[in-house]
Design a protein around this nucleic acid. Structure first.
Lengths: 196, 196
DNA sequence: TCCCGAGGAAACTGTATTAGTATACATAGT
DNA sequence: ACTATGTATACTAATACAGTTTCCTCGGGA
Protein backbone atom coordinates (compact mmCIF):
# COMPACT_ATOMS: atom_id res chain seq x y z
CA UNK A 1 0.00 0.00 0.00
CA UNK A 2 2.95 2.29 0.35
CA UNK A 3 3.35 1.76 -3.32
CA UNK A 4 0.52 4.28 -3.63
CA UNK A 5 2.53 6.81 -1.72
CA UNK A 6 5.48 6.26 -3.99
CA UNK A 7 3.36 6.69 -7.10
CA UNK A 8 1.99 9.94 -5.76
CA UNK A 9 5.40 11.33 -5.01
CA UNK A 10 6.75 10.24 -8.38
CA UNK A 11 3.94 11.89 -10.32
CA UNK A 12 3.99 14.99 -8.14
CA UNK A 13 7.72 15.29 -8.54
CA UNK A 14 7.53 15.12 -12.28
CA UNK A 15 4.76 17.66 -12.58
CA UNK A 16 5.70 20.01 -9.77
CA UNK A 17 9.27 20.44 -10.92
CA UNK A 18 8.31 20.86 -14.57
CA UNK A 19 5.28 23.11 -14.24
CA UNK A 20 5.46 24.52 -10.74
CA UNK A 21 3.12 23.32 -8.02
CA UNK A 22 0.69 26.16 -8.54
CA UNK A 23 0.13 24.86 -12.04
CA UNK A 24 -0.78 21.38 -10.84
CA UNK A 25 -3.93 20.99 -8.76
CA UNK A 26 -4.56 18.16 -6.37
CA UNK A 27 -7.43 17.10 -8.64
CA UNK A 28 -5.03 16.89 -11.58
CA UNK A 29 -2.66 14.84 -9.53
CA UNK A 30 -5.29 12.45 -8.25
CA UNK A 31 -6.50 11.89 -11.79
CA UNK A 32 -2.97 11.41 -13.04
CA UNK A 33 -2.17 8.80 -10.43
CA UNK A 34 -5.59 7.21 -10.87
CA UNK A 35 -6.89 7.57 -7.36
CA UNK A 36 -9.42 9.73 -5.57
CA UNK A 37 -8.50 12.86 -3.72
CA UNK A 38 -9.62 11.16 -0.55
CA UNK A 39 -6.88 8.58 -0.85
CA UNK A 40 -4.42 11.24 -1.82
CA UNK A 41 -5.22 13.17 1.32
CA UNK A 42 -4.94 9.98 3.31
CA UNK A 43 -1.25 9.94 2.44
CA UNK A 44 -0.46 13.63 2.60
CA UNK A 45 -2.32 15.97 4.85
CA UNK A 46 -1.83 19.00 2.66
CA UNK A 47 -0.37 20.08 -0.64
CA UNK A 48 2.54 21.69 1.16
CA UNK A 49 3.17 18.39 2.87
CA UNK A 50 3.39 16.75 -0.54
CA UNK A 51 5.70 19.39 -1.92
CA UNK A 52 7.99 18.81 1.03
CA UNK A 53 7.91 15.06 0.52
CA UNK A 54 8.90 15.56 -3.09
CA UNK A 55 11.82 17.72 -2.08
CA UNK A 56 12.90 15.24 0.55
CA UNK A 57 12.87 12.42 -1.98
CA UNK A 58 14.85 14.51 -4.39
CA UNK A 59 17.47 15.29 -1.79
CA UNK A 60 17.69 11.70 -0.63
CA UNK A 61 18.46 10.73 -4.18
CA UNK A 62 21.02 13.51 -4.50
CA UNK A 63 22.75 12.47 -1.28
CA UNK A 64 22.94 8.91 -2.52
CA UNK A 65 24.49 9.88 -5.85
CA UNK A 66 26.96 12.28 -4.30
CA UNK A 67 28.11 9.69 -1.77
CA UNK A 68 28.60 7.15 -4.54
CA UNK A 69 30.76 9.59 -6.43
CA UNK A 70 32.86 10.35 -3.39
CA UNK A 71 33.35 6.65 -2.77
CA UNK A 72 34.28 5.90 -6.35
CA UNK A 73 36.57 8.84 -6.92
CA UNK A 74 38.58 8.87 -3.73
CA UNK A 75 41.76 8.38 -5.75
CA UNK A 76 41.08 10.75 -8.62
CA UNK A 77 40.28 14.12 -7.14
CA UNK A 78 39.80 16.02 -10.36
CA UNK A 79 37.47 13.43 -11.70
CA UNK A 80 35.60 13.48 -8.40
CA UNK A 81 35.21 17.23 -8.56
CA UNK A 82 34.08 17.02 -12.12
CA UNK A 83 31.54 14.32 -11.45
CA UNK A 84 30.26 16.07 -8.35
CA UNK A 85 29.67 19.14 -10.46
CA UNK A 86 28.09 17.20 -13.26
CA UNK A 87 25.82 15.41 -10.82
CA UNK A 88 24.68 18.63 -9.20
CA UNK A 89 23.97 20.18 -12.57
CA UNK A 90 21.97 17.19 -13.72
CA UNK A 91 19.98 17.09 -10.51
CA UNK A 92 19.29 20.80 -10.62
CA UNK A 93 18.15 20.61 -14.20
CA UNK A 94 15.00 18.79 -13.17
CA UNK A 95 13.85 21.86 -11.30
CA UNK A 96 12.44 24.23 -13.88
CA UNK A 97 11.85 27.97 -13.51
CA UNK A 98 8.10 27.67 -12.84
CA UNK A 99 8.81 25.68 -9.69
CA UNK A 100 11.31 28.22 -8.46
CA UNK A 101 8.80 30.93 -9.21
CA UNK A 102 6.09 29.23 -7.20
CA UNK A 103 8.35 28.68 -4.23
CA UNK A 104 9.19 32.33 -4.31
CA UNK A 105 5.62 33.54 -4.56
CA UNK A 106 3.80 31.14 -2.35
CA UNK A 107 6.06 29.20 -0.09
CA UNK A 108 9.32 30.95 0.70
CA UNK A 109 9.41 28.96 3.94
CA UNK A 110 9.79 25.77 1.92
CA UNK A 111 13.03 27.13 0.62
CA UNK A 112 14.51 26.82 4.09
CA UNK A 113 14.35 23.06 3.73
CA UNK A 114 16.14 23.31 0.41
CA UNK A 115 18.89 25.48 1.84
CA UNK A 116 19.49 23.18 4.77
CA UNK A 117 19.68 19.98 2.79
CA UNK A 118 21.72 21.57 0.08
CA UNK A 119 24.28 22.94 2.50
CA UNK A 120 24.57 19.58 4.20
CA UNK A 121 25.08 17.77 0.90
CA UNK A 122 27.67 20.21 -0.37
CA UNK A 123 29.61 20.24 2.89
CA UNK A 124 29.74 16.51 3.27
CA UNK A 125 30.87 15.70 -0.26
CA UNK A 126 33.12 18.55 -1.09
CA UNK A 127 34.92 18.31 2.22
CA UNK A 128 35.72 14.69 1.46
CA UNK A 129 36.88 15.36 -2.07
CA UNK A 130 38.83 18.49 -1.24
CA UNK A 131 40.61 16.68 1.57
CA UNK A 132 41.81 14.08 -0.87
CA UNK A 133 42.77 16.89 -3.21
CA UNK A 134 44.96 18.42 -0.57
CA UNK A 135 46.77 15.18 0.06
CA UNK A 136 47.41 14.95 -3.65
CA UNK A 137 48.65 18.55 -3.73
CA UNK A 138 45.95 19.57 -6.13
CA UNK A 139 43.99 21.80 -3.81
CA UNK A 140 45.54 24.81 -2.11
CA UNK A 141 46.13 24.67 1.62
CA UNK A 142 46.63 28.31 2.48
CA UNK A 143 43.31 28.53 4.24
CA UNK A 144 41.14 26.05 6.03
CA UNK A 145 38.84 23.57 4.39
CA UNK A 146 35.99 24.99 6.47
CA UNK A 147 36.64 28.40 5.02
CA UNK A 148 36.73 27.04 1.51
CA UNK A 149 33.44 25.26 1.98
CA UNK A 150 31.88 28.27 3.64
CA UNK A 151 32.78 30.36 0.63
CA UNK A 152 31.18 27.85 -1.69
CA UNK A 153 28.09 27.60 0.50
CA UNK A 154 27.84 31.35 0.80
CA UNK A 155 28.07 31.81 -2.93
CA UNK A 156 25.50 29.09 -3.49
CA UNK A 157 23.04 30.49 -0.96
CA UNK A 158 23.48 33.97 -2.33
CA UNK A 159 22.88 33.00 -5.93
CA UNK A 160 20.76 29.86 -6.07
CA UNK A 161 17.59 31.21 -4.51
CA UNK A 162 14.35 32.22 -6.13
CA UNK A 163 14.71 35.96 -5.68
CA UNK A 164 18.26 36.23 -6.99
CA UNK A 165 17.68 33.86 -9.86
CA UNK A 166 14.69 35.95 -10.92
CA UNK A 167 16.80 39.08 -10.66
CA UNK A 168 19.64 37.62 -12.72
CA UNK A 169 17.22 35.92 -15.07
CA UNK A 170 19.29 32.76 -14.88
CA UNK A 171 18.24 29.17 -14.61
CA UNK A 172 19.47 27.26 -11.57
CA UNK A 173 21.68 25.15 -13.80
CA UNK A 174 23.38 28.10 -15.46
CA UNK A 175 23.93 29.81 -12.15
CA UNK A 176 25.37 26.71 -10.57
CA UNK A 177 27.73 26.28 -13.50
CA UNK A 178 28.96 29.81 -13.07
CA UNK A 179 29.59 29.37 -9.35
CA UNK A 180 31.47 26.13 -9.82
CA UNK A 181 33.63 27.49 -12.61
CA UNK A 182 34.72 30.31 -10.38
CA UNK A 183 35.17 28.07 -7.40
CA UNK A 184 37.38 25.62 -9.28
CA UNK A 185 39.50 28.26 -10.91
CA UNK A 186 40.06 29.83 -7.54
CA UNK A 187 40.60 26.69 -5.56
CA UNK A 188 43.01 24.83 -7.81
CA UNK A 189 46.77 25.22 -7.57
CA UNK A 190 48.80 25.72 -10.71
CA UNK A 191 49.64 22.05 -10.69
CA UNK A 192 46.00 21.20 -10.48
CA UNK A 193 45.12 23.55 -13.27
CA UNK A 194 47.74 21.97 -15.52
CA UNK A 195 46.23 18.60 -14.90
CA UNK A 196 42.81 19.68 -16.17
CA UNK B 1 4.20 55.48 -27.92
CA UNK B 2 4.17 52.20 -29.70
CA UNK B 3 7.34 51.53 -27.83
CA UNK B 4 5.04 50.70 -24.91
CA UNK B 5 3.34 48.05 -26.99
CA UNK B 6 6.66 46.55 -27.91
CA UNK B 7 7.78 46.46 -24.30
CA UNK B 8 4.57 44.70 -23.32
CA UNK B 9 4.94 42.05 -25.99
CA UNK B 10 8.59 41.50 -25.15
CA UNK B 11 7.94 40.98 -21.46
CA UNK B 12 4.85 38.89 -22.09
CA UNK B 13 6.72 36.74 -24.55
CA UNK B 14 9.50 36.06 -22.13
CA UNK B 15 7.21 35.17 -19.24
CA UNK B 16 4.43 33.42 -21.11
CA UNK B 17 6.73 31.06 -22.94
CA UNK B 18 8.79 30.30 -19.86
CA UNK B 19 6.05 29.95 -17.23
CA UNK B 20 2.86 29.53 -19.23
CA UNK B 21 0.34 32.33 -19.48
CA UNK B 22 -1.77 30.98 -16.64
CA UNK B 23 1.20 31.48 -14.37
CA UNK B 24 1.59 35.13 -15.29
CA UNK B 25 -1.22 37.49 -14.32
CA UNK B 26 -1.93 40.76 -16.03
CA UNK B 27 -1.06 42.44 -12.74
CA UNK B 28 2.33 40.77 -12.77
CA UNK B 29 2.89 41.87 -16.30
CA UNK B 30 1.85 45.46 -15.73
CA UNK B 31 4.21 45.64 -12.76
CA UNK B 32 7.02 44.04 -14.74
CA UNK B 33 6.69 46.49 -17.60
CA UNK B 34 6.20 49.37 -15.19
CA UNK B 35 2.80 50.55 -16.30
CA UNK B 36 -0.72 50.39 -14.98
CA UNK B 37 -3.19 47.76 -16.04
CA UNK B 38 -5.23 50.54 -17.56
CA UNK B 39 -2.51 51.33 -20.06
CA UNK B 40 -1.94 47.65 -20.65
CA UNK B 41 -5.59 47.19 -21.55
CA UNK B 42 -5.39 50.24 -23.78
CA UNK B 43 -3.01 48.28 -25.97
CA UNK B 44 -4.56 44.82 -25.78
CA UNK B 45 -8.21 44.29 -25.21
CA UNK B 46 -7.81 40.95 -23.47
CA UNK B 47 -5.21 38.55 -22.24
CA UNK B 48 -5.97 36.25 -25.14
CA UNK B 49 -5.36 39.13 -27.48
CA UNK B 50 -1.94 39.58 -25.92
CA UNK B 51 -1.11 35.90 -26.13
CA UNK B 52 -1.95 36.00 -29.82
CA UNK B 53 0.17 39.08 -30.34
CA UNK B 54 3.07 37.29 -28.71
CA UNK B 55 2.64 34.31 -31.00
CA UNK B 56 2.40 36.53 -34.04
CA UNK B 57 5.61 38.30 -33.13
CA UNK B 58 7.31 34.98 -32.59
CA UNK B 59 6.23 33.70 -35.98
CA UNK B 60 7.20 36.91 -37.74
CA UNK B 61 10.66 36.46 -36.33
CA UNK B 62 10.74 32.82 -37.36
CA UNK B 63 9.66 33.65 -40.92
CA UNK B 64 12.38 36.25 -41.14
CA UNK B 65 15.08 33.88 -39.99
CA UNK B 66 13.94 31.05 -42.21
CA UNK B 67 13.84 33.30 -45.26
CA UNK B 68 17.34 34.51 -44.52
CA UNK B 69 18.59 30.95 -44.37
CA UNK B 70 16.93 30.03 -47.64
CA UNK B 71 18.48 33.06 -49.29
CA UNK B 72 21.94 32.37 -47.91
CA UNK B 73 22.00 28.66 -48.55
CA UNK B 74 20.54 28.45 -52.03
CA UNK B 75 23.77 26.84 -53.25
CA UNK B 76 24.45 24.48 -50.40
CA UNK B 77 21.35 22.38 -49.88
CA UNK B 78 22.60 20.23 -47.06
CA UNK B 79 23.76 23.23 -45.13
CA UNK B 80 20.42 24.86 -45.78
CA UNK B 81 18.54 21.85 -44.48
CA UNK B 82 20.76 21.69 -41.46
CA UNK B 83 20.39 25.37 -40.65
CA UNK B 84 16.65 25.26 -41.19
CA UNK B 85 16.44 22.45 -38.70
CA UNK B 86 18.74 24.14 -36.27
CA UNK B 87 16.74 27.36 -36.53
CA UNK B 88 13.44 25.59 -35.90
CA UNK B 89 14.89 23.81 -32.90
CA UNK B 90 16.24 27.01 -31.44
CA UNK B 91 12.98 28.84 -31.96
CA UNK B 92 10.95 26.03 -30.49
CA UNK B 93 13.19 25.84 -27.47
CA UNK B 94 11.85 29.16 -26.21
CA UNK B 95 8.45 27.57 -25.76
CA UNK B 96 8.56 25.63 -22.52
CA UNK B 97 6.20 22.86 -21.39
CA UNK B 98 4.10 25.09 -19.10
CA UNK B 99 3.07 27.18 -22.07
CA UNK B 100 2.08 24.13 -24.08
CA UNK B 101 0.17 22.89 -21.09
CA UNK B 102 -1.77 26.12 -20.75
CA UNK B 103 -2.65 26.22 -24.40
CA UNK B 104 -3.97 22.73 -24.08
CA UNK B 105 -6.02 23.35 -20.98
CA UNK B 106 -7.35 26.81 -21.57
CA UNK B 107 -7.04 27.90 -25.14
CA UNK B 108 -6.94 25.07 -27.64
CA UNK B 109 -8.36 27.48 -30.20
CA UNK B 110 -5.17 29.49 -30.00
CA UNK B 111 -3.34 26.48 -31.26
CA UNK B 112 -5.08 26.86 -34.60
CA UNK B 113 -3.09 30.02 -35.16
CA UNK B 114 0.09 28.14 -34.38
CA UNK B 115 -0.73 25.34 -36.78
CA UNK B 116 -1.53 27.70 -39.62
CA UNK B 117 1.56 29.83 -39.31
CA UNK B 118 3.77 26.82 -38.76
CA UNK B 119 2.51 25.03 -41.83
CA UNK B 120 2.99 28.14 -43.92
CA UNK B 121 6.54 28.61 -42.69
CA UNK B 122 7.52 25.00 -43.23
CA UNK B 123 5.98 24.84 -46.69
CA UNK B 124 7.57 28.00 -47.92
CA UNK B 125 11.10 27.26 -46.76
CA UNK B 126 11.39 23.56 -47.22
CA UNK B 127 9.90 23.71 -50.69
CA UNK B 128 12.56 26.18 -51.69
CA UNK B 129 15.41 24.20 -50.19
CA UNK B 130 14.18 20.83 -51.38
CA UNK B 131 13.79 22.18 -54.91
CA UNK B 132 17.43 23.17 -54.91
CA UNK B 133 18.25 19.78 -53.48
CA UNK B 134 16.57 18.08 -56.36
CA UNK B 135 18.50 20.08 -58.89
CA UNK B 136 21.67 19.06 -57.11
CA UNK B 137 20.55 15.42 -57.10
CA UNK B 138 20.60 15.26 -53.35
CA UNK B 139 16.89 14.90 -52.80
CA UNK B 140 14.92 12.01 -54.24
CA UNK B 141 12.47 12.78 -57.04
CA UNK B 142 10.32 9.68 -57.04
CA UNK B 143 7.35 11.51 -55.63
CA UNK B 144 6.25 15.10 -55.76
CA UNK B 145 7.58 17.91 -53.66
CA UNK B 146 4.04 18.62 -52.50
CA UNK B 147 3.76 15.06 -51.22
CA UNK B 148 7.07 15.33 -49.42
CA UNK B 149 6.05 18.55 -47.73
CA UNK B 150 2.64 17.17 -46.84
CA UNK B 151 4.28 14.24 -45.14
CA UNK B 152 6.47 16.55 -43.13
CA UNK B 153 3.55 18.80 -42.25
CA UNK B 154 1.39 15.86 -41.34
CA UNK B 155 4.03 14.44 -39.06
CA UNK B 156 4.58 17.81 -37.48
CA UNK B 157 0.88 18.46 -36.89
CA UNK B 158 0.41 14.98 -35.51
CA UNK B 159 3.28 15.19 -33.07
CA UNK B 160 3.92 18.81 -32.16
CA UNK B 161 0.65 19.60 -30.46
CA UNK B 162 -0.13 19.91 -26.79
CA UNK B 163 -2.12 16.70 -26.45
CA UNK B 164 0.36 14.43 -28.22
CA UNK B 165 3.36 16.01 -26.56
CA UNK B 166 1.74 15.41 -23.19
CA UNK B 167 1.03 11.83 -24.14
CA UNK B 168 4.58 11.18 -25.34
CA UNK B 169 6.04 13.22 -22.49
CA UNK B 170 8.37 14.91 -24.91
CA UNK B 171 9.43 18.50 -25.15
CA UNK B 172 8.64 20.26 -28.43
CA UNK B 173 12.34 20.44 -29.20
CA UNK B 174 12.95 16.74 -28.72
CA UNK B 175 9.94 15.83 -30.78
CA UNK B 176 10.90 18.13 -33.58
CA UNK B 177 14.39 16.66 -33.62
CA UNK B 178 12.94 13.18 -33.94
CA UNK B 179 10.69 14.16 -36.81
CA UNK B 180 13.48 15.84 -38.70
CA UNK B 181 15.89 13.00 -38.25
CA UNK B 182 13.38 10.63 -39.76
CA UNK B 183 12.46 13.05 -42.49
CA UNK B 184 16.05 13.58 -43.55
CA UNK B 185 17.00 9.96 -43.45
CA UNK B 186 14.00 9.19 -45.58
CA UNK B 187 14.32 12.01 -48.03
CA UNK B 188 17.99 11.88 -48.83
CA UNK B 189 19.41 9.79 -51.66
CA UNK B 190 22.43 7.63 -51.04
CA UNK B 191 24.58 10.28 -52.60
CA UNK B 192 23.11 12.86 -50.27
CA UNK B 193 23.66 10.64 -47.29
CA UNK B 194 27.30 10.14 -48.14
CA UNK B 195 27.76 13.87 -48.29
CA UNK B 196 26.58 14.37 -44.72
C1' DT C 1 -2.73 80.23 -14.79
C1' DC C 2 -5.86 77.20 -16.41
C1' DC C 3 -6.94 73.27 -19.04
C1' DC C 4 -6.55 68.82 -20.96
C1' DG C 5 -5.03 64.39 -21.99
C1' DA C 6 -2.24 60.50 -20.80
C1' DG C 7 -1.07 57.57 -17.60
C1' DG C 8 -0.39 55.69 -12.70
C1' DA C 9 -2.29 53.69 -8.25
C1' DA C 10 -5.49 51.19 -6.37
C1' DA C 11 -10.21 49.85 -5.28
C1' DC C 12 -13.84 47.02 -6.96
C1' DT C 13 -16.65 43.18 -9.14
C1' DG C 14 -17.90 38.91 -10.82
C1' DT C 15 -16.30 34.58 -11.90
C1' DA C 16 -13.43 30.60 -12.12
C1' DT C 17 -10.24 27.75 -9.77
C1' DT C 18 -8.98 24.89 -6.24
C1' DA C 19 -7.56 23.14 -1.42
C1' DG C 20 -9.69 20.49 1.54
C1' DT C 21 -13.96 17.84 3.35
C1' DA C 22 -17.83 14.98 3.35
C1' DT C 23 -21.11 11.74 1.39
C1' DA C 24 -22.65 7.89 -1.34
C1' DC C 25 -21.40 3.86 -3.75
C1' DA C 26 -18.37 -0.31 -5.28
C1' DT C 27 -15.41 -4.15 -4.28
C1' DA C 28 -12.78 -7.57 -1.96
C1' DG C 29 -11.31 -10.15 1.89
C1' DT C 30 -12.85 -12.46 6.01
C1' DA D 1 -23.13 -10.30 5.88
C1' DC D 2 -19.53 -7.03 7.57
C1' DT D 3 -15.65 -4.25 7.39
C1' DA D 4 -11.94 -1.93 5.25
C1' DT D 5 -10.29 0.48 1.51
C1' DG D 6 -10.85 3.00 -2.29
C1' DT D 7 -13.49 5.65 -6.13
C1' DA D 8 -16.52 9.14 -7.77
C1' DT D 9 -18.31 13.26 -6.95
C1' DA D 10 -20.75 16.95 -4.72
C1' DC D 11 -19.83 20.66 -1.76
C1' DT D 12 -17.70 24.77 0.68
C1' DA D 13 -14.90 28.45 1.66
C1' DA D 14 -11.11 30.93 0.25
C1' DT D 15 -8.50 32.93 -3.15
C1' DA D 16 -6.83 34.71 -7.45
C1' DC D 17 -7.44 37.08 -11.23
C1' DA D 18 -9.44 39.32 -15.68
C1' DG D 19 -11.30 43.29 -16.67
C1' DT D 20 -13.45 47.96 -15.20
C1' DT D 21 -13.71 52.18 -12.90
C1' DT D 22 -12.46 55.98 -10.05
C1' DC D 23 -9.45 59.28 -8.51
C1' DC D 24 -5.17 61.43 -8.70
C1' DT D 25 -0.77 63.45 -10.78
C1' DC D 26 1.99 65.58 -13.97
C1' DG D 27 3.50 67.97 -18.04
C1' DG D 28 2.70 70.69 -21.95
C1' DG D 29 0.18 74.01 -24.66
C1' DA D 30 -2.79 78.23 -25.01
Amino acid sequence: MDDARRRIVTAARQHFFAHGFRGVSMDDLAAEVGMSKKTLYAHFESKTDLVEAVLREKFDELDQELDDIVAECSKDVLRGLHELLECMQRQIEEIQPPFVRDVRREAPEIFELVKKRRSAAISRCFVAVLENGRKAGIVRKDFSLETTIEILLGATDAIINPAKLAELKMSPTEAYGAIMTLFLDGVLTTKGRHML
